[in-house]
Design a binder for these strands. Structure first.
Lengths: 185, 185
DNA sequence: CTTACCATGTAAGCTGTTACATGATTGT
DNA sequence: ACAATCATGTAACAGCTTACATGGTAAG
């Protein structure tokens, strides 16, 4: 049996508030999407499975005239399952896959005049992401001192600062490595 | 159609030297395993596929009396496919999934007295990994100046320094975050 | 009216893990 | 003898992506 991460991610999201499959799909485009995500096709299937496992319950909301939104709530079984999952430490770390770095492992096969383009492409994507993440930070936490952050925002704070730290470190390494490669020419 | 990363990872590995499925499985336990990996069951299947696509060729080597090793070589088609793949920049970045951080997003559901254990567990795993990576660096590059690294080791150097940078950044963030959480108590 | 977004679902196919299965070789 | 490692493979299942498919709502 797999580790059912998506299952628990959905239970976690529903612990914050009732949501539809569409809402959950949207959540994975926000901060938490930096660390887990899924497509709507997978989410709708998982919701059906969770419903049949009695970990969530369903009710219908109508938007406008007749547009149905299937809303889901955590059941007490679902809450227990979530709590249980959250307390168990991860015993191993999965390979954190990165195709760009995989390609660099074979850098001696990349034409010299293409290397800079690959690096700057990656630099641009990562910089844009970092800018976006810093805007999010500014939006939610502004000049607020970390010690003053409300308990119900702590998770979001941790995820955002981790994502920012990850991108900053990535960009620093990119700059250093490109500089090294230029000097070697 | 998928992106066939494993396909290209195998072509890349075979560009360095002829290998068996077993050898390739072993490679994914070394440095490159920090950024891509696969189990032997998947590798043997992929090798058959690559063989049928004429991107690699096969010959048999005997170890000892009768233990067969099926060795694979890149064909010129395979080399072309690899070169082509290496030159194309990644247009998007996949979600870099991290279950530990996903759990932290739901930190307000984690009992206070379990949080430190989760952090220190992660700290220990990451520290062990960093120590291992630094040993690898020491082993391969020692006190050597980065500018003096041979071209055929540049890929390995980049992968190792990236992995070290990633773990260092992760550990720093863990320490800072745990400190913050302790102060909030 | 038309575009963007809201909303849900299924089908096909590829990717990846776990478990099952077998046998050879090397070192103690 | 025994264990660890070398070496290859298949089967079943779980996870995930892409494409197909449909219809409602809100704003300009």
């Amino acid at each position: 049996m797999g580790k059912r991460i998506l299952k628990h991610a959905i239970l976690g999201l529903l612990s914050k508030k009732d949501m539809s499959g569409y809402d959950i799909t949207g959540e994975f485009k926000e901060e938490i999407g930096q660390f887990w995500s899924a497509k709507h096709s997978q989410i709708y299937i998982e919701l059906k499975k969770l419903l049949s496992e009695n970990l969530i319950s369903q009710y219908i909301e109508i938007s406008g005239e007749k547009l149905e939104r299937k809303m889901y709530s955590l059941t007490s079984d679902g809450k227990n399952e979530l709590d249980q999952w959250l307390t168990v430490p991860e015993d191993t770390i999965e390979t954190e896959k990165d195709v760009f770095i995989l390609k660099l492992y074979f850098i001696n096969h990349i034409p010299k005049d293409r290397i800079e383009a690959l690096f700057s492409n990656q630099y641009n994507i990562r910089s844009a992401k970092l800018t976006y993440l810093r805007e999010q930070y500014q939006h939610f936490f502004g000049e607020q001192h970390p010690l003053e952050i409300a308990s119900d925002q702590l998770g979001q704070y941790l995820v955002l600062t981790k994502a920012i730290s990850r991108e900053k470190s990535y960009i620093d390494w990119l700059s250093q490595s490109l500089e090294l490669i230029r000097k070697r020419k």
